[in-house]
Each structure stands twice: as C-alpha cells, then as structure tokens.
C-alpha cells in the first residue's frame, strides 16, 4: 500500500469520525444531508458484498466493516435518535436522491467489468459514490452558517477523493496490470465535484472569515 492510498483511507476515516463526533457529543446533525448519508450507506452495502466472497487482508476487512457500520449508524441516528433527529434540516435537504440511483443502475448494467451480480453492484456503487455528495453540497449552499465540523467533514471527504486519484497515478506507474477505468473515471468525476467547495473553503481560511458558499 502506498502513502497516498493510506493517507486517503485515513482522511476518509477521519471524516467519518468528525461526523460521529458531531452526532455523539454535540447531539446535532445540523447541516448534514441525510440524503447523502443514505446514498453512502447504499454505496458501501453494494460495494462490500465481496466481504462474503473475497478475502484481501485484515486491514481491508476491518475498514470495510467500519465504513459499513458507521454509514448505517449515521443514517439511523439522523432518522431515529430522539435528540439528534430534531437538529436535521429537513426542509432544506430536499434533493431527490432516489432519482440519482436509477441512472447509476442503468449505467452499471451497461458498463461493468463483467456482467455478473457482484460486478454490476460494484460498478453501481462507484457511479453512485461519484454523485452521492451532491445533496450535501446543495445543502451547504442553502445553509447560511456552515459550522466548523460540517466544513471539516466535507473537506476531509474531498481530500480522501483527491488522495485516491494520486494513489491511482502512483499505482499505474508502479504496478503491472493495474488498470481500472470504471474506478478512475467515476473517481475523477467525484473529485471534480469538490473543486468549487475547495475553492471557497480555502478562500475563507486564507481570509480568516466564516465559510459561506455563494447562493
């Protein structure tokens, strides 16, 4: 495992920890999109079906279980926890996320590495992950005051995606037979979706003002 991949996984892990910290200690999910969290729960459930078929490493298995467990529990907290759910910005979080799933499924049926159930689900999870952040970005834009933890959560997620791109470049040049077009294209699309957010985040950081996205 190269340094970009490890750093990518760690920023992904930190992003989840930041979100869990907000939910568990502050008992708030203000500014967090339930739509995005539901999409992530579906992304990890469909991608990690190979937990039952392929063993890669202990690291791999543990990380998969962490991402599965955390994404499902975040959705549960936002929907059912009696304190946390009251802070959910339901009226602002209106992105019709189910509409994203059908095109992703159709694309997965058309473009996959092999036409089997696991491979179609794997491709579906990658296409869906590429667009899963959209409801969150729309919610951020509508929220006037973005709190630090929410900003950091999205920043860490974006960093995770950018580090994965560096990891693919590194692997392409150092490993034989390392070609994953589906992962690369959907991953690059996903990373580009964060570009705008990155821009405004660093502007606010540089000028030492509160993060606000233009309407």
């Amino acid at each position: 495992m190269n340094i970009f991949r490890l750093a990518g996984d760690m920023t992904h892990l930190f992003s989840v920890l930041v979100l869990l910290l907000k939910i568990h200690t502050i008992k708030s999910c203000a500014g967090i999109s339930l739509k995005t969290q539901e999409l992530y729960a579906i992304v990890f459930t469909t991608r990690y079906l190979d937990l039952f078929t392929t063993y890669i490493s202990l690291y791999n298995t543990i990380m998969k279980l962490i991402f599965l467990g955390s994404s499902i529990s975040i959705v549960w907290y936002m929907r059912h926890h009696k304190v946390v759910r009251r802070s959910y910005d339901k009226d602002q979080d209106t992105f019709r996320h189910y509409l994203l799933m059908l095109p992703c499924l159709l694309l997965a049926l058309l473009i996959n590495e092999k036409f089997t159930f696991l491979e179609v689900m794997w491709a579906f999870s990658l296409y869906l992950e590429a667009v899963a952040i959209l409801p969150q970005l729309v919610l951020l834009q509508r929220t006037r005051n973005i709190d630090n933890l929410t900003g950091q959560y999205v920043l860490l997620l974006g960093a995770y995606r950018a580090l994965y791109v560096l990891n693919w470049i590194y692997r392409y040049f150092t490993e034989e037979n390392y070609v994953h077009w589906i992962t690369w294209v959907s991953g690059i699309v996903q990373t580009l979706l964060y570009a705008d957010f990155f821009y405004y985040y660093f502007q606010s950081w540089k000028n030492n003002v509160k993060l606000q996205l233009p309407a």
């Binding site: 392929t54 791999n60 994965y164 037979n177």
Partner: peptide
Amino acid sequence: SKAKVNKDEL
C-alpha cells in the same frame, strides 16, 4: 486479455 486485478481498494 489482462490478468484479473484484485479489487483491493476501499
């Protein structure tokens, strides 16, 4: 065709 690469990423 190419040798199958394990899907070892998360």
